[in-house]
Structure formats: structure tokens, C-alpha cells
């Protein structure tokens, strides 16, 4: 079958190296601390970075169009406290509150997306403002609650929290299953629908997309709305997992999320990338952090390897496509091989 020849070749190369990296990590950390390899522990670790995983697969859409979203973390916290207050203080049915929470996330994302698509502001700036705005709104919403902000709202019904905390066969966390379902959903959305194709086209060449009759403004705005939806979803799941609704959930996830998307193969210039890569990269980063902490590294140091990973992965990609650097590399190679010849 000649179907997905060259394309898959290129994509598979990057993603298989991610899978390889994942396996290497598991091996190395397992050697350092054998407890790491216990299925319960290994799979259980995923719960800790599930928020990052979920948010990053949705943020992928935004980066493919060449934009960036740094407000997702704020939307996570905002959604959390929103459903908390709705359920606890306003008395709305919890599941209805969750639906409202998702809607809120979509709206927050769509607002920034609107400005990006229709007024031409830089995504970085508008989502910066959004991150202030939405984290601020979260704080304001707390004031409507009887509970103090730092405590957070708890006391959620068992079936709500158990749904997220539970495990299948006592080993595989429900969250992992949820994650896999979301990955499948976003995969189909991005790689198998007409909408997804339009997202790619807008990212590869916005002008050409316009000349092909694609409604680029709508498409671009929708990616931010999707990102907001993902953040809201992650917020709800995290709330259920922790059993507490707090305003500062998701505070520090921007760096890991962007790293996951970029490491996963999505170029921040837009046009290339994919959900699977992001998901794998998110797992790589999560396992890296977990493994390091199991190996005795202080949790606070964990941002260093993530930061290094980010810079190196982008540098490699840029060095790869930069003609000057390639020319210098060729020169280097030639000189090196000449030297070897001399020695021999």
C-alpha cells in the first residue's frame, strides 16, 4: 500500500524518537529506583501531570496556526473556582455547573481568539492580557463564595471525584483512559476532518488559504476557543481529582505546555505538527519530572530539564532548517573527514 509513504516517514521519524525517548526514560529511572517500574506507581504518576497533558493537546491547535496561548493556565483555575462556586454557593447541579464551566472556557478562549483573528494583535500579548484577566476574574469569583480563597471549595460528591480518581483493573487510572479518549478525539478533529485541514492550511500559509476561500478568521478564532475548552476540561478534571476547587490551579503550566507542544514536533511558526506528537512529548516531560523526583531530585529543580529540553529541541529544529548553519555543518564535516583521511 503506497498510501501514506513519505509523509508518514517524516512524521513517524520524530514521533518514534519520542517513543524511544519515553522507553529510555522508563528504563533509566527504573534502574535508578526500581519502585518506579511498579505498574501502579508508573501509571499512577500520570495523574500528576494530566493537566499539562490535556491542555497541551488542545493548545496544539493554536500553535499550528502560528499563534501562541499563554492564558490556558489561568482558564484552568478560573473554571475550577467557577464550578466550585456555582455548585457550592449558588446551588447549581454539579454536572450542569461543569457544562457551564466548559462554556466559560470556550468564551474566554474565543475572546482572545477574536482579537487575534479580527484585529491582528499579536497572540502573545493578547493572551498575556487574558492570563491577567482570567486569573483576576477567578479571584473575584472567590469573593462570592463563603469559603476563603486559600482554602478552596471542597466536599464534592464521591461519584464526581471517584470518576476521575478511580482505576481500571486497579492499575490503570481513569484519567489515563480519559486522556487517551481525548487524544483520539483531537486526533480525529485535527487530522481527519475538514476543519482540521483548514487549521493546517491557515498555519502553513494564511494568504494562500485566503486565496483558496478558507475563512481564516473564523478558523483561527476557533482554535483559541478550543484551547479554552481544553483548559476548562483540564480544570474540571483536576478539581475532581483533588477534590478541591481553587483559583490557582494551573498556575505554572505555561512553560511545560508550550514545551510539550514544541517538543512534540509542532513548529511555532505554524503548519506542521500533530496531536500524537504533543501527547507523547507531554508524557515524556511528565515521566521525566516524575522519574527525576523518584530519583531523589528536589521537585523545585524540575523546571530546569524542561527548560533545557525546550531550548534544545527548538534549536535543533531551527539549526536544521537554517541554510547558513547547514552550510557551516557541511564545511565542518568536510574538514573533519579530510582530517581523518590524513591520519589514516
Amino acid at each position: 500500500m503506497n498510501k501514506h509513504e513519505l509523509f508518514k516517514e517524516k512524521v513517524l521519524k520524530w514521533e518514534s524518537s519520542l517513543v524511544l525517548l519515553l522507553l529510555v526514560e522508563v528504563l533509566v529511572f527504573g534502574l535508578i529506583n526500581p519502585k518506579f517500574l511498579i505498574p501502579r506507581v508508573l501509571f499512577g504518576s500520570i495523574n500528576n501531570f494530566m493537566t499539562i497533558c490535556i491542555v497541551s493537546i488542545f493548545v496544539t491547535f493554536v500553535l499550528i496556526t502560528g499563534g501562541i496561548d499563554i492564558q490556558a493556565g489561568s482558564i484552568v483555575g478560573l473554571t475550577s473556582i467557577f464550578i466550585g462556586v456555582l455548585w457550592n454557593d449558588v446551588g447549581v447541579n454539579l454536572y450542569i455547573a461543569c457544562i457551564f464551566g466548559l462554556l466559560l472556557g470556550v468564551l474566554c478562549g474565543a475572546l482572545s481568539g477574536f482579537f487575534v483573528a479580527y484585529t491582528g494583535v499579536q497572540p502573545m500579548v493578547v493572551t498575556l492580557g487574558g492570563s491577567f484577566l482570567y486569573s483576576g476574574l477567578a479571584l473575584i469569583i472567590t469573593n462570592f463564595s463563603s469559603t476563603e480563597a486559600y482554602k478552596g471549595i471542597s466536599g464534592f460528591p464521591q461519584e464526581f471525584t471517584q470518576f476521575v480518581k478511580g482505576k481500571i483493573f486497579g492499575v490503570i487510572p481513569n484519567q489515563l483512559v480519559i486522556f487517551i479518549i481525548l487524544v483520539i478525539f483531537t486526533y480525529f478533529l485535527l487530522h481527519r476532518t475538514i476543519y482540521g485541514r483548514e487549521v493546517f492550511l491557515c498555519g502553513v500559509n494564511k494568504n494562500a488559504a485566503e486565496y483558496s476561500g478558507v475563512k481564516t478568521k473564523m478558523v483561527i478564532m476557533s482554535t483559541y476557543a478550543l484551547s479554552g475548552l481544553g483548559a476548562a476540561l483540564a480544570g474540571i478534571l483536576l478539581t475532581a481529582y483533588l477534590g478541591t476547587a481553587k483559583t490557582d490551579l494551573g498556575k505554572e503550566i505555561t512553560l511545560p505546555v508550550i514545551t510539550a507542544v514544541v517538543l512534540g514536533g509542532t513548529s511555532n511558526l505554524g503548519g506542521t505538527g500533530g496531536v500524537i506528537g504533543t501527547a507523547l512529548a507531554a508524557l515524556v516531560i511528565g515521566i521525566l519530572r516524575f522519574g527525576l523526583s523518584m530519583a531523589g531530585v528536589n521537585t523545585q529543580y524540575l523546571d530546569i530539564p524542561v527548560g533545557v529540553l525546550l531550548v534544545i529541541s527548538v534549536a535543533i529544529r531551527f539549526a536544521g532548517s537554517n541554510p547558513n548553519i547547514q552550510k557551516n555543518l557541511q564545511k565542518f564535516k568536510r574538514r573533519f573527514s579530510r582530517k581523518r583521511k590524513q591520519i589514516v
Binding site: M124, L255, I258, V262, P305, V308, L310, V314, F318
Partner: peptide, 16 residues
């Protein structure tokens, strides 16, 4: 390297 990404990276590294 785009400045947003580079400085995001150094931010993480220095914080750590």
C-alpha cells in the same frame, strides 16, 4: 530561536 520560546526556556532553567 523565536524570542518567546527562548526566554520561556531560560526562564524555566533559571527558576530551577
Amino acid at each position: 530561536i523565536p524570542s518567546i520560546i527562548m526566554t520561556l526556556g531560560t526562564n524555566g532553567i533559571v527558576r530551577g
